[in-house]
Simulated scan of single mutants.
Amino acid sequence: MSIAPPRRIWLWQNIFSPHMAGLAVALARRGCEVTYVAEQALTADRAQQGWLPPSLEGVTLKLMRSAAAVDELVASAPPDGIHICSGIRSNGMVAVAQRALGQRRLCQWVVMETVDDVGWRGVLKRLAYRRLFMQKRQQVQGVLAIGHRTPGWVAARGVPPDRVYPFAYFLPGPDLSLPRGVREAGPFRFVFAGQLIPRKRVDWLINALAALPDPAAELWIVGGGPDEPALRALVDRGLGDRVRWLGQMPLPDVPDVLAQADCLVLPSVHDGWGAVVSEALMVGTPVICSDACGAAGVVWAGGAGGVFPAADRALLALLLEQALAGGPVTTAARLSLAGWAECLCGQAGADYLLRILDHADGRPSSASRPLPPWSQVSTAPCAEARTDE
């Protein structure tokens, strides 16, 4: 019996993202030849937010500084390589790579997040994506759709549904993510981690907590941004010393903070995924988020926390009240949730991606369509918080 050669997988992105690093390393550990190509190692704004260049052991790294460099890289790529490109619109040098890959007729996939298509700009985006997917229908073998609404959205733009696969950002494994140390004693602790910008709607969280009938809860805020002065003034009027401002911190340090909380809250008006949701679940911390966060699907699947419609302040307040009434997260519950969330780790993502590729190639070993890892394991459903789509 002949043995299939190792997969040669190329990842094309604007930066070496820590949110893709876990998947890339896990693929390399499974014997794949992984080449990660980026326009730059890290952007200045991401560095300011605490991002660090990820560790990419076993992965070949290349930079594409110019169109000429892209053409040279594509010309050197093996004919049996699989090229997974970030996005299909307004994506810098990745778009140059996609054109060059198309000219060589090399196997292309697109990985993309949920698109914010609210308002009249959204109408234009929907038209633009439909046109692009039609133009590239012969080049793109499939779409890895990140976010619970993305598969349906992509299919509605004309991509055949059997070529669209639900996907996620699969983060480094439990050995790097499980909580270090025992949860400190104290009152029930909510946490927000992210940029302090209007899109994240931290003001909704502050106002909802200030209105709770039971004040026995505190809030930790990780991050910085232009909204911080206004948010501090809002806290002074409603929550006072119940808020702890932790400021910006290196991305690898955030899981330790999440592990010291009883509930992460992400009330964003839009988040393509919301990697902090995965980070919280992987350390056993329940999550409350809006359904405008791509990661809302894994919150539903994990059954710990809740999801509220993005425009529904009342349900956000109700979910916060329910979380508080349930009391601090026990060690047993935290370990159970963290165990479930291993389905969001790089190892699970690599296995899932390889099954997707086998299925797309029509290999007998993967005749049935693979299911996302988070849909194959379950805990108690969070029925009260879920809304039908």
Score class of each variant (00 low, 15 high):
158 G>I: 12
80 D>C: 05
183 R>C: 09
249 M>C: 11
343 C>V: 00
87 G>V: 06
246 L>K: 10
237 R>Q: 15
154 V>R: 05
301 A>R: 14
171 L>A: 04
283 V>N: 01
109 W>K: 08
234 L>H: 05
185 A>R: 12
110 V>I: 15
255 P>K: 03
291 D>C: 01
60 T>Q: 15
145 A>F: 14
385 A>D: 02
330 T>E: 13
373 P>C: 04
329 V>Q: 15
87 G>I: 11
46 R>Y: 14
196 L>T: 11
383 A>L: 15
56 L>I: 05
225 G>D: 12
90 S>N: 15
208 A>D: 09
4 A>P: 06
343 C>H: 02
77 A>D: 03
294 G>Y: 02
31 G>R: 01
288 I>L: 10
333 A>T: 08
121 R>G: 03
119 G>D: 09
315 L>T: 14
198 P>R: 13
266 L>A: 05
203 D>T: 03
95 A>M: 05
8 R>H: 14
152 G>F: 06
354 L>W: 01
280 A>T: 04
209 L>F: 14
289 C>N: 13
179 P>G: 08
322 Q>K: 09
197 I>V: 12
1 M>L: 12
269 V>H: 11
326 G>Q: 14
210 A>N: 03
389 E>D: 10
309 P>F: 12
335 L>K: 10
169 Y>G: 03
128 A>K: 13
15 I>L: 04
113 E>G: 00
291 D>M: 07
203 D>L: 02
200 K>V: 04
162 D>P: 04
141 Q>G: 10
300 W>Q: 13
203 D>W: 09
314 A>L: 12
264 L>Q: 10
159 V>G: 06
215 P>S: 15
68 A>D: 07
14 N>F: 03
10 W>G: 09
264 L>Y: 09
65 R>W: 12
256 D>C: 07
66 S>E: 04
270 H>E: 03
387 T>F: 15
386 R>V: 12
335 L>S: 11
61 L>S: 11
121 R>K: 09
62 K>V: 13
217 A>H: 13
18 P>D: 07
156 A>R: 08
65 R>K: 14
143 V>H: 08
166 P>G: 06
150 T>D: 09
108 Q>M: 04
231 L>P: 13
102 G>T: 00
132 L>Y: 02
201 R>G: 00
350 A>H: 10
243 V>P: 09
82 I>S: 07
56 L>V: 06
6 P>A: 02
335 L>P: 01
295 A>T: 03
8 R>V: 15
213 P>F: 02
330 T>H: 01
142 G>D: 08
235 V>Y: 06
22 G>C: 00
206 I>S: 12
249 M>T: 03
59 V>C: 09
5 P>D: 01
15 I>E: 15
22 G>E: 04
346 G>C: 00
171 L>Q: 00
318 L>N: 05
292 A>K: 07
281 L>C: 05
349 G>P: 08
70 V>A: 12
266 L>V: 05
346 G>D: 02
153 W>F: 15
373 P>E: 10
56 L>S: 03
357 L>D: 07
215 P>Q: 14
311 A>S: 13
247 G>K: 12
278 S>N: 08
310 A>D: 09
49 Q>H: 08
218 E>C: 11
183 R>K: 14
116 D>Y: 07
